[in-house]
């Protein structure tokens, strides 16, 4: 009996010790944004099939991703809101941002008959500020000639959890409305002047569907999945744009800075959709830190390189816009700049 017990313990210990070795594969650890998670899980699954490298990505939110990278517990992080100059200023080892794809934030609503509505930037800001409270408001009617708008109260639905989606949306509103910028500002969590909060994109989509007269903002894919009406938004050039991947790609056609940390909301592009943003992978430029091996650094950089090239084919089927040409070139330059002990990691 006793001997059997010892044998069992011995066997288990051996298994535990041998586990990672026997698996043989490298494992890359990542954490962060939830918004690109459907794409990342598809990409990383394919990558595992093709190259035998396992990528473990935890969708814990952009803020969490940044925290984990800073505490050096993961190989890379994912974020929808780029780190500010202030955040990056005090780092002895610079953190790089590599854009992977683009997503759109759409305005969705629930009205009898599900009409397609047009919104101007100032109408949107005033609705979310709680200043336009009725669907048959004069300004809404003016922007939507021919649409029979009901005499219903507008119920604003926003995210209750901190979110990159909220960041993109509030960044847009801050650009188009001085009052919004002054009173609410931009951030992942806000002091909302009006309305109800719901958790996650599915929560907002669900609540908007439940409440006649409500209006909210979600990622494009959620409105498509739930077959909800989406608003056409007037861009800077004066055109009303239906949200689409093409519209987002056009918006991202702006001149990018070399580190790709840029907000592309309210773009100049004539047919660009005005509320969209990049999502990035972040990691350290000098990969020799905390006892990391060169192998580990190479595995990470190979993955990132693959994600901005071959991995892009998985974006469109999942309703993410792939990187436009200009952004892809900038991303390549950034990946080339990664070093291990001062020497370039990427093998050309």
């Amino acid at each position: 009996m006793k001997i059997a017990g010892y044998v069992l313990i011995l066997a288990m210990t051996t298994l535990l010790l041998a586990g990672p070795v026997a698996a043989g594969d490298k494992e890359i650890l990542g954490a962060g944004a939830t918004f690109p998670y459907p794409l990342y899980s598809k990409m990383f699954d394919e990558y595992h099939k093709q190259y035998g490298v396992k990528v473990n990505y935890q969708a814990i939110g952009s803020g969490g991703g940044i925290k984990q990278v800073k505490s050096r517990t993961v190989d890379f992080g994912g974020t929808d809101a780029f780190m500010s100059d202030d955040d990056l200023k005090d780092l002895d080892n610079p953190i790089l941002h590599v854009p992977v794809c683009l997503g759109a934030v759409v305005i969705t609503y629930s009205l009898p008959g599900g009409p397609v509505l047009k919104f101007t930037p100032d109408i949107l800001a005033d609705i979310f500020l709680g200043k336009i409270t009725k669907w048959n408001d004069g300004r809404l009617a003016e922007a939507n000639p021919g649409v029979d708008l009901p005499d219903m109260a507008i119920v604003v639905v926003h995210r209750s959890d901190g979110s990159g989606t909220t960041f993109i949306f509030s960044d847009y509103l801050s650009k188009v409305s001085i009052e919004w910028e002054r009173e609410v500002g931009r951030g992942k969590s806000l002091n909302w002047p009006a309305g109800l909060g719901a958790k996650g994109n599915p929560g907002v989509a669900g609540l908007v569907k439940q409440l006649p007269g409500s209006i909210g903002y979600v990622e494009l894919i959620y409105s498509l999945q739930n077959k909800m009406p989406v608003g056409h938004i007037r861009n800077r050039a004066g055109n009303y744009i239906e949200p689409s991947m093409e519209g987002v790609s056009l918006a991202a056609g702006v001149k990018l800075p070399d580190d790709t940390r840029v907000s592309i909301t309210d773009p100049d592009a004539e047919l660009g959709y005005p509320i969209s943003g990049f999502t990035w992978l972040i990691f350290y430029r000098e990969q020799k830190y905390g006892g990391r091996s060169r192998d580990q650094a190479e595995a990470l950089i190979d993955l990132v390189w693959w994600a901005i090239h071959d991995g892009q084919e998985f974006a469109e089927p999942l309703h993410y816009a792939p990187l436009p040409e200009g952004a892809a070139r900038k991303a390549e330059t950034i990946v080339r700049s990664v070093v291990y002990d001062g020497k370039q990691v990427l093998s050309e």
């Binding site: 969490g64 959890d161 901190g162 309305g195 109800l196 909060g197």
Partner: peptide
């Protein structure tokens, strides 16, 4: 999940537990 002082039993509000669950991950 409205972070205002509730005005009555029909008004939306928020609780301590729900606030933590909502905002902790991204803080």
């Amino acid at each position: 999940n409205s972070n205002f002082l509730p005005r009555g039993i029909f008004s939306p509000a928020n609780t301590m537990a729900s606030l933590i669950a909502n905002e902790f991950a991204e803080a």
